[in-house]
Design a protein around this nucleic acid. Structure first.
Lengths: 202, 202, 202, 202
DNA sequence: CATGAATGAGTATTCATTCAT
DNA sequence: AATGAATGAATACTCATTCAT
């Protein structure tokens, strides 16, 4: 009976604090990388004692896991999925890439942390599987668009949807490598990719 | 007797030792990442005292810089550049991607370290500039091929060489994210990319 | 319904809870020793919050003191004292040692905790005095038996009752050192000790 | 070839330092017990940095193990064994107990640490075995004396040498429990024990 | 060139205790 | 009586770096 009310959606004071800690941790990982990530600094920024942080997250590993969940959780929310469902595939793909490029402009920190995550995935089985699961979902989403577009004549008739999905993902992923890249270069490449996939005018 | 053989290329015995240290360091960075990279472990594997290592490399930073130089130096040796110079651009590009994909199969460690380097570049100005320089050279090399191919009719007439170079680099770079990716998937994507760039049959 | 039964001996519900805490604490000291004894673990096993435990026992020291009282309180209940009062001294001593040896078989945990207590006594004045008081009572009890036995011809005429009491106590105490000792070895030694004290047959 | 000279008996500077650290550690264990034993305090007393201590002993456990070895090593040197070899068994046993009682007077710290060791042995398999090995050697030594004494008429004819050895060891061991015991009480008990074992005058 | 020994600053984690509710 | 959250002071251990030999 006790504390029943508190088990709602993050309304609890404790949950609130945990969210705060994870948010700060993500910031710090973006700034310093996993290499320079210190739990003590998280506690300092949040303004709590290091022991309090360990009360909420029993170990550094647990805190990192929470950060990973948070990041991947955001990845899985592909915003245009629902709204653009009834667009023609080419426009759909165009908007999808546009959304990612916008995020690249507006929230570059997220990309930096994703880069950290990718590097960590090489040696952390858990992170690797988490990222792989997210990757598969994204790939399937793209393959569906590309196949529908090919069959509907919006894309080249000889298009290999899975291979093309690899290209789209590869291109978008490679943005992670260019924290200083100009958005313009990226948009030109996205346009070129769309032309690549589009059938030639007769 | 000792060190007699060492008087070959690479200079004196000291240079030889330095090369050995850098090689071990690269191995360890590939295994543990920068996060788990310890100078003491380098010394242990080489079989020398930690103080001796510091005699050759005054600081960890200096050792890491040497490793970075070694890796980037290898990057800049694009093997097919010379030999394939007089091939037609489409075959040239195809072979270039093939070479990289072969390296991905045979020497994945190099890709892992490159991934580490990319992540570090976000916070290390020196590494960032070193990688950027290598990147520009690669890009120019590809742009040249793509432009020649477009003008010679091997590639689509409406091709944007610079944007296409971004796509090629992006695709190849994204391999770093898939340490477990099947080589087959990558080759299918490379083929698709070539089809993308090729003009449609009339 | 709740707490109804609890209104028996031991007073109110609070006393009941305190008894429960002390019992768990003794168990844990037996398992982990004073070195590995944690108040938090006591609270966890009892199933209460650590703050609740501190409500009942203001400090770790207070809880330990309660455990010590509990253990020494049990020591002072020498069961055969009353029932065997009118036995001949030799049988009396034999039964006394038998009772202790039986406890050694049946309730070895108690011996383990006593060992912890003895070690702590070196540095804790309070524990030392508590144990010393218990010791003196035991010693006097044995001296009485031995003196009566000597004067009544059951033991050797040249027996030094106090020295013999030291031997009996020393032997029984030394059982603490042998958590893995066979009961048989101990009983053989007890028999030998009795023979030692008994006058030779004429 | 290098440093060959240094591998002699503890003459090396490093060995010297290790001996010093172990000696200080033993002192501190005697003063504070294992419960209050801190590696940092060892370093402080020795006058070295905590990292230097960890250079010589990689972990607290390793340091404790070295202390245990040192203590048990001393236990195994039963001084009177050689010199008293040709004494009659009764005098031999008397002197043996005398030596232990003298140590009890002169070097009580050693007994305190032994007490700590005994308590730790309950939970530490290694310490338990080490102590057990030392115990067996001591027991065999005593059994030999007692058997020879019985067969030679110095001790009672119905003496059980192994049981009597248990009594002697038990008595001497029980001294550990009485850090404040008067030496006089102990000597009276030792005398009584000798009388116990001696055959009655005809 | 090479080494054993040493160190300062840090690094995650622990634990008894306290306090507002 | 009971609890979730918080804290100060420790605690073992690590790591790059230095120095005398």
């Amino acid at each position: 009976m006790q504390g029943e009310r508190r088990q709602q959606r993050g309304g609890n004071a404790g949950d609130q604090r945990r969210l705060q800690i994870v948010a700060v941790a993500e910031d710090l990982i973006a700034q310093k990388g996993f290499e320079g990530f210190r739990v003590r600094e998280v506690a300092d920024v949040v303004g709590i004692n290091i022991a309090t942080l360990h009360y909420h997250f029993p170990s550094k590993e647990a805190l990192v896991a929470a950060v990973v969940d948070r990041i991947v959780g955001r990845l899985d929310q592909v915003p245009p999925l629902q709204e653009s469902a009834n667009l023609d595939p080419r426009t759909h793909l165009s908007r999808h890439m546009g959304v990612v490029l916008d995020q690249f402009d507006d929230n570059r920190q997220q990309f930096v942390v994703l880069n950290e995550l990718n590097t960590r995935a090489v040696r952390d089985e858990t992170v690797c599987e988490t990222l792989a699961a997210s990757d598969i979902a994204w790939r399937e989403y793209l393959v569906e668009i590309l196949r529908a577009g090919r069959d509907g004549g919006h894309f080249r008739a000889d298009l290999d949807p899975e291979a093309a999905a690899t290209l789209v993902i590869g291109f978008l992923r490679s943005l992670l490598f260019h924290p200083a890249a100009s958005a313009d270069t990226a948009r030109r490449a996205a346009d070129e990719l769309l032309r690549c996939l589009t059938p030639p005018p007769l």
